[in-house]
Amino acid sequence: MRHVFSVRVGPAGFRVGSDWRAPVAALEALYAGYPKAGIADFTVRLEAARPWRRWIRPSVTIAGDYMLPDAVPLALRHGLLAAEMGMNLQMALGARRWLLLHAASLERDGRALILTGASGSGKSTLAALLGDRGWRLMGDEFALIDLANGVLHPFPRPVSLKNAAIALFDAARLGPLLAATPKGDIRHLRPNADAIARMAEPAAPALILFPRFGHAAAERPVAPSEVFVRLTQASTNYVALGEAGFDALTRLVTTLPARAIDYPDADSAVALVERLWAAA
């Protein structure tokens, strides 16, 4: 492929090939300071579905080692988003070395907090905010649980911020505005220098939270069986991991406290998190 980008994020290396220069240029800017991949674990391809699609109403088809049938192509101006989605897809479908949870994770004093929830639960924004308030951001999209010993491996990709959340952060740390994507306006927030520098430092998980944005502040404990069910739903590769996945997940739910938290705004979220962390 004509244009190539290579990056290592935490323990995973990616090779991104593109028919156009623009997405690769955007990736190079967004991932400045990240190490290169060496032998990549996963290959992503940003390709023109038909040869003329490179120039005429250019649209980007996301392809790679692992692909979804019937994937809808994105406009070239959203090529950076296509690359990010492509990398997410490779991890979601191909990762076998860690139990993957759709969760944000943050580290403080060697212990890690897991914030798990679907897209729209506000976990990415909350994680980004905590990452600027004394926590090391380990990741916002995927939490990587070691199959052998249950530690969390950092996977600090740029945080995908949507719509109103964009305004909460300093524009100097943001990638380009991707306007009117299928998910609204998006800008990517670079993790801070500390998060990038320490991307090879794992941490033992200490607390699982299920955050829910847009409700009056509240919290309740979550029983292990409920945690188990919700985390299997939040995992893209639990089934594929067989007994190793079962062991990792049962270890997690039987050893960690878990709470569901509701919050109306960012500040009350941060306050809730700090209080529960101190008690954990």
């Binding site: 029983a223 292990p224 069986s225 188990f228 079962f246 049962t250 039987t254």
Partner: peptide
């Protein structure tokens, strides 16, 4: 088997 609470995984 891993007993959780009311349910056993």
């Amino acid at each position: 088997r891993v007993p959780l609470d009311m349910l056993t995984a």
